[in-house]
């Protein structure tokens, strides 16, 4: 299991065990509607799990993006910065937000697998 989810509607891919790629789920993308602006963390920033890592501005509202794990930001998606609509067109692929070096892999234990996340969506 290398893709996990959070109750805040983010996904995290750690197929590379040293770092995680983070984005928002298809559900979040649809719920937000047209995304017109994103604020990404700075490369090199050290973030604690649960900290605000960026901002997503849809036409209607601004939403915080949290980091599901602690670590140092190693890369941000410049293509997304230039074209925020990527987070609508392909939220779980080309619309990723940032990559973080995983500091403590035990933090992954509390994240949801796909089945658990889908169950969460059904319950809402």
């Amino acid at each position: 299991m290398t893709i996990q989810f959070t109750v805040e509607h983010e996904w995290l891919d750690h197929s590379d065990p040293a770092q995680a790629t983070i984005g928002i789920t298809q559900h979040a993308s649809s719920a937000l509607g047209d995304i017109v602006y994103v604020e990404l963390p700075e490369v090199g920033a050290k973030l604690e799990k649960g900290a605000v890592a960026g901002t997503i501005e849809s036409v209607k509202a601004a939403s915080d993006l949290y980091t599901p794990v602690s670590g140092e930001v190693v890369e941000v998606n410049e293509a997304l910065r230039a074209d925020p609509a990527l987070a609508n067109a392909d939220p779980e692929g080309a619309g990723w937000f940032f990559r973080i070096r995983i500091e403590d892999s035990s933090e992954l234990d509390s994240l949801l697998d796909k089945a658990a996340y889908e169950k969460l969506l059904e319950a809402q």
């Binding site: 719920a31 937000l32 509202a61 939403s63």
Partner: peptide
């Protein structure tokens, strides 16, 4: 992110 505070979440019955 918190989708419930934006008036964007779908409504419960």
């Amino acid at each position: 992110m918190d989708l419930t505070c934006q008036g964007l979440s779908t409504m419960s019955s």
